[in-house]
Amino acid sequence: MFEALLQQAEAAPALEPTAAAALAVGLAAFGAGYAERGIGAAAMGAIAEDDSLFVNGLILTVLPETLVILALVVVFLV
């Protein structure tokens, strides 16, 4: 009986590698979103005071996006 259980467990792991990779990307995106929240709010404040900061604000706001791009590598590795 125990053997049967063990066999079953081996046959179906709790998390497939692809599912784990998807989760990793999702978590990375969540982190990036959280980081962008603060930066975006600060950038909007700065732009409201001085229009010339628009480009700087935009660049700094999307910088955490690199987190997701790097995490995307995992998808191609599995």
Binding site: G38, I39, A41, A42, A43, M44, G45, A46, A48, E49, D50
Partner: peptide
């Protein structure tokens, strides 16, 4: 609370 936004504006004003 939104300290990021307010601080950015305040620094510019300052």
């Amino acid at each position: 609370s939104n300290p990021e936004y307010v601080t950015a504006r305040v620094r510019a004003r300052r």
